[in-house]
Simulated scan of single mutants.
Amino acid sequence: MDHKVHTERYELIFQLSGAADDVVRVRLTDRLGAGGFPVYEDETGIVRAEISDRGEVRMLASGGHQVPGTPLLARLLNEDAPRTP
């Protein structure tokens, strides 16, 4: 397998019906998903996603009976950019 440097953080944007989009920030973990790409998770460990080098996202269940939704977008987070509230 290639030893590529992977992006440290992403924002996963989920569309909610009738409301503003839900944004979840995820960080790189030391695990790989079934597709061989890195697994990212939020600070709680509940939201988990395998993100390919092309930005394709596969959501991963973190517990029983969980049916994770699919995000509209995985946006790279630039660590040097100012944060928006």
Rank of each mutant, 00 (worst) to 15 (best):
D2W: 12
D2Q: 15
D2F: 13
H3R: 13
V5M: 09
T7Q: 10
E8P: 04
E8F: 07
E8N: 11
R9N: 15
R9T: 13
Y10L: 05
Y10M: 06
E11I: 05
E11W: 05
E11G: 08
L12H: 05
L12E: 07
I13N: 07
I13Y: 04
I13K: 11
I13M: 09
F14V: 00
Q15L: 08
Q15Y: 08
Q15K: 12
L16T: 12
S17V: 06
G18D: 14
A20H: 12
D22R: 15
D22T: 08
V24D: 07
R25E: 15
V26M: 02
R27V: 14
L28H: 10
L28V: 09
L28Q: 09
T29H: 08
R31S: 09
L32E: 03
L32F: 00
L32Q: 00
A34E: 02
G36N: 01
G36H: 00
E41C: 02
E41N: 05
D42L: 10
D42F: 06
D42A: 08
E43L: 11
G45Y: 07
G45V: 04
V47Q: 09
I51D: 09
I51Q: 07
I51P: 07
R54G: 05
G55L: 00
G55E: 02
E56C: 04
V57W: 03
R58Q: 06
M59V: 08
M59S: 14
L60W: 02
L60R: 00
A61G: 11
A61D: 04
S62K: 07
S62T: 11
S62F: 03
G64C: 01
G64F: 10
G64Q: 07
H65G: 13
G69D: 15
G69P: 14
T70H: 12
T70W: 07
P71V: 02
P71K: 04
L72K: 10
L72M: 13
L72A: 14
L73Y: 04
R75L: 01
R75M: 00
R75E: 01
L77Q: 08
L77G: 03
N78M: 13
E79H: 15
D80P: 04
P82W: 10
P82T: 06
T84P: 10
T84R: 15
P85G: 11
P85R: 14
